[in-house]
Design a protein around this nucleic acid. Structure first.
Lengths: 301, 301
DNA sequence: GATTCATTATCGTTTTTACCGATAGCTGAT
DNA sequence: ATCAGCTATCGGTAAAAACGATAATGAATC
């Protein structure tokens, strides 16, 4: 058994099509067929049932699949470890981040890029569920997002800060004077609501089930920056975590007065995976930056 | 990078002596030297510092060591997993069975579970048509049911036993004395009839088209055990395969006298599919158990 | 300082094997 | 009946692993 064969097996198990798998592995279908057969012989068990129009995994095959993936992953970890060691910090760092988290990242990105010029940063904005899925597939090194309501088994979440779900208004808005608001305060006003799927909306819906229906929702959309632009240029209000308006001038966040109104900003990493040094370093810098803002009592509890 | 090279590396790191490591790896020292060098080239880092009287790990080497071990361990886990499956120390077996077939299964289930404690049995009671559909989708490993009237192309049916469609009565019932009955014998009596879809009903309807209409049907239902309970606790009779009352005390099965009154108890498997070792084993045990009952001339022809 | 000894590296050769291209055979769709 | 898409198989080739012999190194010994 060799890593090559496991790689071939996993690809084939994923596509369930020898020809297609062979193409993406850059070998001929003939080679792939032989290598799989060889693996089957070595394990003395059939891994696939093939007939000329379908390929399916046998029980052995589907049992093997996660173990094969794990083995390949371990091999990748060997490479990662050596590379980190050799170059201290280099390579690339894949960061996933939710839209509402975006503003607090920018500072650290700039600082990190200045200090570690050889690290390529890939930053991916998506919804939390999509990001956690990518993390699971190891397409990301870590994810910045609020803590999900249901904890995920394989994912480790490290809390960066606590934050309140807030009403966001232009500083000219009538509500802008208040220090905190209730649901009743909101109802008379026009609202630009984050769409379902965004974490602020999830949090709002779970704090106030069905409230959205009775509100004066003028627009609902899934892009936070556009939401902020709208609020900035109109008398509408929106509902987001307070941290989201960090460094966005002319807006004010007013905490909503309700029990358990707390959103925990977290770094999510894969529990079992190897952590790149660049990732460690980035997270350290981010924590430090958050700590500074905490001490300045900026928008954090 | 291949598992072979990692294996060579780990052994060498443990002995810190190429010659000795080569010996225990059953290759020449020359081969080992080349393979290590190749690994070093691929990782673009030195793993050992050799001078002619000592070999020591570099920092890279000692950092790699645990990761390499982990990778090899994962590969071993692949083998172990498959071996367990082959030896039926793990895995699962999905059995489909019709209600009327249920009584003959129990014994074998108990025996199989005793012998193969680590194989999970999933037993699914449904009508034959539903079961064969599940078999086609490979959600089941095999199906126990009477032979269907229309043969199915992709499905292979292996006959376990022949059986007669019979009248089932309480042992106190007036018919209980007889050795066989005709349709005319049945007509005067109250009947609890299996509902359409159950195989006994299908068989009855094809032997006596339209007879059901002229019979004294008091109740019609699709649960065999309930049917048997009803017959046991009332003067009603029902019509089922003789095998169905296996191990149900206080009932008697009387064959109906009519040509081609035969229901073949079968194991149905998917023709082209891979057959699990556990399935082979189970079917063997079941056949054996049926054979024993045949020899005892129990209820089988 | 020469010799020995145990060690790793290197070179040329042999053996093994991964890979390719062509083709056969199967099956569902046209 | 033909076609299109799939996997298996065969024979040949190129790559790579393995070998055996030998060179190079340097510590220990005489």
């Amino acid at each position: 058994m060799e890593l090559r064969q496991l790689k071939y097996f996993v690809k084939t198990a994923e596509t369930l099509n020898f020809s297609e798998a062979a193409k993406s592995l850059f070998v001929t279908q003939s080679t792939l067929s032989q290598q799989i057969r060889q693996l089957e012989q070595e394990l003395d068990t059939a891994l696939f049932v093939r007939d000329s129009h379908s390929v399916v995994l046998t029980e052995s095959g589907s049992q093997l699949l996660p173990y094969a993936k794990q083995t390949l992953q371990s091999a990748v970890a060997c490479f990662d470890r050596i590379r980190d060691l050799k170059e201290m910090l280099s390579g690339s760092l894949n960061i996933g981040i939710t839209y509402s988290f975006a503003p607090i990242l920018t500072e650290t990105v700039l600082e990190f890029m200045k200090v570690h010029q050889n690290v390529k940063l890939n930053i991916c904005y998506k919804t939390m569920e999509e990001l956690l899925e990518m993390l699971r597939k190891r397409e990301l090194d870590f994810v910045l997002a609020f803590k999900p309501s249901a904890p995920h088994e394989e994912i480790e979440s490290h809390i960066l800060f606590d934050n309140n779900l807030s009403v966001i208004v232009n500083t000219n808005h009538p509500l802008a004077e208040k220090d905190c608001v209730t649901l009743a305060d909101i109802l008379p006003h026009g609202i630009a609501l984050p769409a379902k799927g965004l974490q602020a909306r999830n949090a709002f819906d779970s704090l106030f089930p069905d409230a959205a229906k009775s509100m004066n929702v003028k627009v609902e959309l899934n892009e936070v920056n556009v939401l902020l632009d709208i609020v900035h240029g109109s008398p509408l209000l929106t509902i987001l975590s307070a941290a989201t308006i960090h460094q966005f001038p002319g807006l004010k966040a007013i905490p909503i007065e309700v029990p358990r109104n707390t959103m925990e900003g977290c770094v999510h990493t894969l529990r079992k995976s190897y952590r790149k040094r660049a990732a460690e370093e980035f997270i350290m810098m981010l924590s430090e930056s958050v700590a500074v803002r905490k001490r300045a009592n900026y928008w954090l509890k």
